[in-house]
Amino acid sequence: MFGVLRAYVLIALWQARPGLAGYDVADAVTFCFVTQALIGPMQLFGGGLTLPERIRSGDIALDLVRPAPLQLWTLAEDVGRAAYLFAVRSLPPMLLGAALFGIVVPADAGRWAAFAAGFALALVVSFAWRYLIALSVCWLQDDRGVAVLSLVLTTFFSGMMVPLHLFPGRLGDLATSLPWAAMVQLPTDLYLGKASVPETLALQAFWAAALMGFGALATRAVRHKVVIQGG
């Protein structure tokens, strides 16, 4: 539903400016439905993790004494949820888009493989970001501010609303190199075959590693805080 409305806006834009950002109209429509399909598994509207509740209730202490590291354990849970959301939330919009407008489907196996790799990395980036946001609850009294800030950054800078290539000048370059682009814009470009595969995957891998690293540090800090202060 929302994808369809967005598709019309993009079609109108590409009718006014054919070939914008190196996409043709079919690419733009496909972009719209691929990004729509990514909302579910990438949890772009935030949430998904039960961590903030567990921190508030104090159950986090139980998680920290488990033999498996908290961050990886949570990642495993999140990947499972993403697989489920992919099935129920991603396929229907793709099929709807294909039926209403017709979308581009990559023909060669190489592009599919690149997209699959990009998708997997995007999942890790998305998880690592939300994990950091969730842990921030430990240090903040009112976590709503961070949640909304994350929502704004994620929806606007992921490419979920308009392709980041449309952002003017420097802003566009900056936006495509930020972690949020790694969640939506980059995997979608891999799907469309509009970006260099090694460079894109490298950027995604960089953000995945960087955010997971921060997450690991934050986990240690939380463990310290819980152990010393008793939660």
Binding site: A16, R144, G145, M161, L166, P168
Partner: peptide, 28 residues
């Protein structure tokens, strides 16, 4: 804080319109 955040969230939609019109002078 919540008043301010509401303002910011709503601004995202306007920002999208501005981005679209950074690329074209007329839409439909």
């Amino acid at each position: 804080l919540m008043v301010l955040l509401g303002f910011v969230v709503a601004a995202v939609d306007v920002a999208v319109i501005l981005v679209v019109f950074a690329n074209t002078t007329a839409l439909a």
